[in-house]
Design a protein around this nucleic acid. Structure first.
Ligand SMILES: [Mn+2]
Ligand SMILES: [Mn+2]
Ligand SMILES: [Mn+2]
Ligand SMILES: [Mn+2]
Lengths: 220, 220
DNA sequence: AAAAATTTTTAGATTTACCTAAAAATAAAA
DNA sequence: TTTTATTTTTAGGTAAATCTAAAAATTTTT
C-alpha cells in the first residue's frame, strides 16, 4: 500500500515516461511542485519498495509493479472525472483538482462500483482512455491538430493540456470533444490555423493547435 | 483550513460532546486509536487555532468555530454514505470506512452538487440527520428500544452503533430503518426483548435493544 | 580536452503526527 | 485525610516528507 505522496510520484513518473524512456529528477520536481533534493529522497524510497528502477544520476523508470500502481491511480482519477462531469454537472475545466484528491481514496470495491455506475466509460472528459480493472486500455492513435495539412479533416478526440484556462478557451470557440473540423488555411505570418467547425471559420493560435488531438479521417 | 488529522480530532470531539459537556483526553485517544500523550499535543494545537477551549487537566470542548468545522465534516460523511448506498448499492454496514476517507475531500462546490444530486437527503443510511450547508439540522427525538415497555410500538429510525457486525445482524433479523415494531415481552431471565415485526416474533438481546433507536407512537 | 553550465545528490534542518517513559495533577478508596 | 489508582501532561525521540546550501557528477560549450 502506497502513501498519498508516493502515489503522486508514481503517477507523475508514469506521465513523464510517455515522453522520455527514463525520467529526470528535475522534471519530477517541477510536476510535483517540490525541490529536486526531495525528489531524490523519494526516488530512493520508491526504489527500495521495488516500484522504480533507479541508477544514480541516470534517471528513473517504473518497474512493472510501479507502472501497475500508477495505472490504477490514473484509472481512479479518470473515473472520478467522468463522475463529476456526467453526474454532478461539472464542466470539463473544473474537475481536475477535485479528481486529484479523489484518486487517492483507497477502496477497490468503491472504484469497481463507480465504474459500473458510470456504465464502464472508455474515456474521460478530456478524451483520455480509462484503464479497465486489469489496467488494460487501448492506446489511442492521436494526431496533433498542428500537424494536419490544409484540406485535412477529422474529429476532436482529446486535449493534451488540462488547464482550466485552455479548456475554457476551447469551450468558448465551440471546440469540444466529438466536434468535426477541417483545416482551411495556415497563416504565413504567425502560423495560426484557420479551421472550419460547425459551419464556422475559426482562427486558433499555434499554441492552441498543439494541444488539440484529432482522430483524422484524412483528406476529403 | 484543517489537516486530515485535525478534522478527525474535531469530529471525534464533536461526537463525544454529545454525551458529556467536556471531553476527556483518554476518550479521544480511544476513538482516534492513538495514545493520550498524542491527544494532548493535538489539543494544544487545536486550542492555538481557536477550534477548542482547553484547560489543562479539565478536558476540552469545541468553540463555535470548531463545532462548525466538525458539523461540516459530519455533513460530508453522511452525504457520502447516502451516495454509496443509494447510487453505488453498498449495504449500510459497508459504507462507514470509505466515508471516513471521502469526508476529507476539500471542495465546497463538490459537496453542494453531491447534495443536490442525492436530492438533498435529510438523513443518512443509519438514520442520522444530515446538516444542511449552513450546519443546521433537526435534533431528532429518539427513544432506545430497550427503554420501551411491553405493548409499546414504534418505528425503527436509527441505530447508535455502526459496526458492520451489528448492522449485518439487524439486517438478518429484518430490523432495518422504517420497520414497524411492537414490544410483546421482556424475558425475566436475561432481559432479552420479544418484539413483533413484519408479523414475525423476534427475540433480541439487551445489548442489541440498547442500540436500536425508535420514534415511538406510544401504546396501540 | 578543458572550462562552464546544468543536473543531481548529500548533509544537515524543519514540521507534523506520532511514540514511550516518567512526572504531575486529579479522583477514588481506605 | 492519607493512601492508592487513574488521568493527564511533559520530556525527549522517531519517521515521513519537506527544505536550503554545498558538493559531486554529468552534459554542453568553447
Ligand atoms: Mn494526486
Ligand atoms: Mn482527465
Ligand atoms: Mn475521517
Ligand atoms: Mn452514518
Amino acid at each position: 500500500m502506497q502513501s498519498f505522496t508516493e502515489e503522486n510520484y508514481l503517477k507523475v513518473i508514469y506521465h513523464l515516461a510517455e515522453k522520455t524512456e527514463t525520467v529526470q529528477t528535475n522534471a519530477i520536481a517541477e510536476q510535483i511542485q517540490t525541490k529536486p533534493a526531495s525528489v531524490t529522497d523519494m526516488i530512493k524510497k520508491l526504489a527500495d519498495k521495488g516500484l522504480v528502477d533507479y541508477i544514480k544520476y541516470q534517471g528513473v523508470s517504473l518497474t512493472d509493479k510501479g507502472r501497475s500502481a500508477a495505472i490504477d491511480i490514473v484509472r481512479k482519477h479518470r473515473l472520478w472525472e467522468v463522475f463529476l462531469v456526467d453526474k454532478l454537472n461539472f464542466k470539463w475545466d473544473e474537475v481536475h483538482d477535485v479528481a486529484e484528491e479523489l484518486e487517492h481514496i483507497k477502496s477497490v470495491d468503491l472504484i469497481e462500483r463507480l465504474d459500473e455506475f458510470l456504465g464502464f466509460p472508455k474515456s474521460d472528459p478530456h478524451g483520455d482512455p480509462i484503464p479497465d480493472k486489469h489496467g488494460r486500455f487501448a492506446k489511442t492513435q492521436f494526431i496533433k491538430l498542428i500537424d494536419l495539412k490544409v484540406g485535412d479533416s477529422g474529429t476532436i478526440t482529446g486535449v493534451s493540456q488540462h488547464s482550466s484556462a485552455f479548456l475554457k478557451h476551447l469551450e468558448k470557440l465551440g471546440l469540444t470533444l466529438g466536434k468535426q473540423i477541417q483545416i482551411t488555411d495556415v497563416t504565413d505570418f504567425d502560423g495560426s490555423v484557420e479551421i472550419l467547425s460547425s459551419e464556422k471559420q475559426i482562427n486558433i493560435s499555434r499554441e492552441v493547435a498543439k494541444h488539440i488531438l484529432i482522430s483524422s479521417n484524412g483528406k476529403i
